[in-house]
Computed example of a mutant assay.
Amino acid sequence: MAKKDNFEDYVQLEEYVSQENLSKVRSELTTCLELNTSVAGTIIEIDKNFAKSILITTNDMVVDEHGLIFDAFIFAAANYVAQAAINKEFSVVIGTKCFFYAPLKIGDILQLEAHALFDETSKKRDVKVIGYTKDIKMFEGTIQIVTTEEHIFDLKRPPLNSTKDTQQGENSNTSNVNPDAMAATILASMGK
């Protein structure tokens, strides 16, 4: 495991954003309010269809003795800044296309910017996210997000399909969610 002294007590967030601006962002942010920002980054700027964040890498993100950062933390930070660019209380990622151009190591600071595309009244949005460490592009992606009027778990669930398991020679019923019904439920929540 990489040692903390590899990066002299880590960079403090205050080097990138004032406490005043951070408080302003926190008061405007309506999405992902319970997210652990120590592993998903901190939103440092927010505006209509735009958000900027900082991910400060820590020992908790390291996967080996060389200090390599697990790429899932990079994706989590990109997802979070994309959600913030839309800034709706109820939103869910439905698709992504991402490129990791270079690995991060302990002590790297990843700055991410997200630009939400399409009209903000649209329920389905594409968000372009780009991440840099110093002047090196480390990450680029498009994250598709759908917003709903209520929490995804509170939406009416689609009917279940019952299928018979004949591979084992038994007539047991196994319930599976019908994908067409699930898609219809999400589209209905989007008002289509």
Score class of each variant (00 low, 15 high):
Ala2Tyr: 08
Lys3Arg: 08
Asp5Arg: 11
Asp5Gln: 12
Asn6Tyr: 13
Asp9Leu: 09
Leu13Thr: 01
Tyr16Arg: 06
Tyr16Gly: 06
Tyr16Phe: 15
Val17Ser: 02
Glu20Phe: 03
Lys24Glu: 10
Arg26Ala: 12
Ser27Cys: 05
Leu29Arg: 01
Leu29Tyr: 02
Thr30Gln: 11
Thr30Cys: 05
Glu34Lys: 15
Leu35His: 09
Leu35Pro: 00
Asn36Pro: 07
Thr37Asp: 11
Thr37Val: 11
Ser38Cys: 03
Ser38Ile: 06
Thr42Met: 06
Glu45Ser: 13
Glu45Thr: 03
Ile46Glu: 01
Ile46Met: 12
Lys48Gln: 12
Asn49Lys: 13
Phe50Cys: 07
Phe50Gln: 09
Phe50Lys: 15
Ala51Leu: 06
Ala51Pro: 01
Lys52His: 05
Ile54Ala: 13
Thr57His: 02
Thr58Val: 00
Asn59Glu: 14
Val62Gly: 04
Leu68Phe: 04
Ile69Val: 09
Ile69Phe: 01
Phe73Leu: 00
Phe75Cys: 02
Ala76Met: 08
Ala76Ile: 00
Ala76Lys: 09
Ala77Pro: 01
Ala77Ile: 05
Asn79Cys: 05
Tyr80His: 10
Tyr80Lys: 02
Ala84Gly: 07
Ala85Ser: 15
Phe90Gly: 00
Val92Leu: 15
Val93His: 04
Gly95Glu: 01
Gly95Trp: 01
Cys98Arg: 07
Tyr101Phe: 13
Ala102Arg: 14
Ala102His: 14
Ala102Phe: 10
Leu104His: 02
Ile106His: 07
Gln111Gly: 06
Ala114Gln: 11
Ala114Ile: 11
Ala114Arg: 12
Ala116Pro: 05
Ala116Ile: 08
Ala116Trp: 00
Leu117Ala: 07
Leu117Asn: 11
Asp119Cys: 00
Glu120Val: 09
Lys123Trp: 07
Val127Arg: 07
Val127Tyr: 04
Val127Leu: 05
Lys128Gly: 03
Gly131Asn: 07
Gly131His: 06
Lys134Pro: 05
Lys134Asp: 11
Lys137Gln: 11
Glu140Cys: 01
Thr142Leu: 10
Ile145Gly: 06
Val146Gln: 09
Glu149Met: 04
Glu149Ser: 12
His151Trp: 10
Phe153Pro: 03
Pro159Trp: 02
Leu160Gln: 12
Asn161Thr: 14
Asn161Tyr: 09
Ser162Phe: 13
Ser162Gln: 14
Lys164Asp: 10
Lys164Gln: 12
Asp165Gly: 03
Gln167Cys: 07
Gln167Ile: 10
Gln168Asp: 11
Glu170Leu: 14
Asn171Asp: 07
Ser175Gly: 08
Ser175Thr: 12
Ser175Val: 10
Asn176Phe: 15
Asp180Ala: 15
Met182Cys: 15
Ala184Gly: 15
Ile186Gln: 09
Met190His: 03
Met190Asn: 02
Gly191Asp: 02
